[in-house]
Design a protein around this nucleic acid. Structure first.
Lengths: 186, 186
DNA sequence: CGCCGAGTTGAACTGAATCAAGAAACGTGG
DNA sequence: CCACGTTTCTTGATTCAGTTCAACTCGGCG
């Protein structure tokens, strides 16, 4: 919780009142390996911060499980509304290790945005950061070979390989499990 | 100019003082077909709004000209810092038709963000919108065939085909000009 | 011990890239 | 308004990275 506030403070200074209001709206939850956030099958209505552990965000495409995003310690998961053919995709969040999360409801988030300018600023900065990350991914998908995409992931997120099943890595990279296996065999 | 303010107001209501300050910082420029924004070769330091016309944002990858984004009437172009292998990519903006743009310097933008909460909010909302668009593109790149990507573009931006050279469409879609040509021949 | 999910390996297939050549459209100057 | 060169687009033949399908291996767990 402290580390969360600290992290936000790095984006922009938060005043006491805002921290107080924010703290009131946050709840901490613990999930065990392979559990899902219980909000599945609902419209996503919360924002999460990962205190410890690792999760993946995924969706179903033609019945196949596609990993959209990994997040681990000190990272955020927001309801990044994914769109497919003009329609929002139902997204799910699965915990890949025992994980501690902070949760805040979207409507509480909206209220804080409205009430505190500095909080709105932090929201803007975090989203901007996410946008930049995503833009790198677009380039990777457009030009990198399977091997290059795997190596980029290794470079940017070295720990992930040991913690996450390869099938999830494969779908995240947009390649098949078989191709990933061959790439890894050098 | 009016349409610009109106458009912003749709995101969040701006007060008089903010509109006044904003207006002071905006300059209108006119560019002819094929001209470039003169800020090329510099670090991008402005934000644009397209009043009329169409532009493309592109970068060079291994000497090849890759279109990253199209923008036309009533759309924004920000310095969406693209990253490639961890390094920011120099981006260029070329006008594809005679075009009228509004320009605001980044540092003026930052001042307005700081001064007006409602302006910061608009910034957050516009970036969020961009993020959603980009997330759709990630899915398209991961799963769509060349034909499907082309059809998606046709559906979402029907006018663009007649206004933009096919080679730019091709590099935007992440396919070769030859493949695009074949796809178009049904 | 035997099952089951996860990962590996192999062979055939395919969508798109590449390379190459030609056609069509465009603009500029005579 | 036409001739010429440049740029843009099309078409064809070949190649290749990655998919698909299928069989097999490995490790954990009831």
């Amino acid at each position: 919780m402290k580390s969360f506030i600290e992290l936000l403070n790095n984006y922009a200074p938060l005043n006491e009142g805002c921290i107080k209001d924010l703290t009131k709206e946050i709840t901490e939850i613990h999930l065990l390996k392979d559990e899902h956030l219980e909000e599945n099958n609902k419209h996503p209505d919360s924002f999460y911060f990962i205190v410890e552990g690792i999760v993946r965000v995924y969706y179903l495409k033609d019945g196949k499980d596609i990993t959209d995003w990994f997040a681990s310690k000190n990272q955020f998961i927001g309801p990044i509304l994914n769109i497919y053919g003009g329609k929002p995709i139902q997204q799910y969040v699965q915990v890949l290790e025992n994980t501690t999360l902070l949760v805040i409801k979207n409507n509480a988030l909206e209220k804080l945005y409205k009430k505190y300018h500095s909080f709105e600023r932090i929201g803007r900065l975090i989203i901007t950061q996410t946008l930049i990350q995503l833009s790198e991914r677009v380039i990777a998908l457009q030009f990198y070979s399977a091997k290059e995409k795997y190596e980029l992931l290794l470079k940017e997120n070295p720990g992930i390989i040991k913690r996450v099943a390869l099938k999830h890595i494969a779908s995240y990279l947009g390649i098949t499990l078989e191709t990933l296996s061959r790439v890894r065999g050098q």
